[in-house]
Design a protein around this nucleic acid. Sequence first.
DNA 1: GATGTGACTGACC
DNA 2: TGGTCAGCCACAT
Length: 110
Amino acid sequence: MSQRSSFFQDVYEVVMLIPPGRVTSYGAIGKYLGMSSSARMVGWAMNSAHTLPHVPAHRVVNRIGVLTGKFFFETPNRMQELLEAENIEVANDQIQNFTDFFWDPVKELL
DNA sequence: GATGTGACTGACC
DNA sequence: TGGTCAGCCACAT
């Protein structure tokens, strides 16, 4: 994967591989790309991902399941609505039973 | 070419 | 048990 245009592309691919009804964390993606300590970069990549059409950024949250990037969406409620549309429980901008919905690319894609 | 910033994470006090 | 500090890499100015 890596060594392409940007590792951004890899982030987009992983995010697009997230199954419906599942979510993952920035750190998990970073770890899958070999940069577990650079979770910030994953979030930064999501900033650019906002310009792309089919990148489900709403399925990417921080390690505790909080919708930290909801304000980056068209509307703050958009992220929660998209998650709820996939049967993911969201309360107070935080995913309920996060570990149950958590999808780890390192373990699932391996 | 250097500096600042950011949708995070892990460790320390 | 909970809040605070510093590290991390890539991109924009």
